[in-house]
């Protein structure tokens, strides 16, 4: 039998194992140190009194409800929310759309079944549209996955700057190389947006 008194930590650990972490109805492992402590407790009135005080404290702690939210709280919260929408479906659809666009552009380029002159002309005229779409896409993403602790402007400034320069280049001169550039940029954009999305998920978890 141990001769020294049980410490506060030992008494608490003993009660935690017996009452909270492994309630009596759940058969848990028998700890050797518990047996040792129990033997001491059987013979030591000082430690027994300490254990009793802690037992009372635990009982008191189990009854310390302090939250008094009104009965209609759930209704109140539900009314304060923006209109319900099928969030997950919308998110998945938009992600799928981005990936499908990237894939299609990549495939078209690889297969070489593209009339370069037509594409070059279209690229020139749609460059401005693409720039607008990029902004819109990012805005949509931001609305979907808002992160109050994240500075969006810091991320967007270089992207907007880059898209502006590309538009200028395409407006002055167009050719197959520029089409490839646009396709590559769309692909990069998609990957970049997915990385932000992934990053936000990881950050939250």
């Amino acid at each position: 039998m141990r001769l020294r008194h049980l410490t506060d930590i030992e008494i608490q650990a003993l009660l935690d194992r017996r009452t909270v972490l492994e309630p009596p109805e759940v058969p848990g492992p028998i700890y050797l140190k518990d047996l040792d402590s129990q033997e001491h407790l059987d013979h030591c009135p000082v430690c027994k009194a300490e254990l009793e005080t802690y037992r009372e404290l635990y009982a008191g702690l189990g009854r310390t409800e302090v939250s008094y939210l009104p009965r209609n709280f759930a209704t109140k919260v539900t009314f304060s929310l923006p209109p319900f929408r099928a969030q997950r479906t919308r998110a998945r659809l938009q992600l799928a759309l981005i990936w499908a666009t990237s894939l299609l552009v990549g495939l078209a380029w690889l297969l070489g079944r593209v009339d370069w002159s037509v594409l070059a002309a279209r690229a020139m005229t749609s460059a401005f549209g693409w720039w607008c779409q990029t902004k819109a896409m990012v805005t949509v993403f931001w609305a979907m996955f808002p992160r109050p602790d994240f500075d969006l402007t810091r991320l967007l400034t270089p992207v907007y700057g880059l898209s502006d320069s590309i538009t200028k280049v395409l407006a002055s001169e167009a050719g197959p190389a520029h089409v490839v550039l646009v396709a590559g940029l769309i692909l990069l954009m998609a990957v970049w947006l997915d990385l932000i999305y992934l990053g936000s998920l990881l950050h939250r978890l």
Binding site: A74, V77, L81, F84, R85, A86, Q87
Partner: peptide, 9 residues
């Protein structure tokens, strides 16, 4: 996520 307000409540 499917849009059921009762579920959120």
């Amino acid at each position: 996520l499917g849009g059921d307000p009762g579920a959120f409540k």
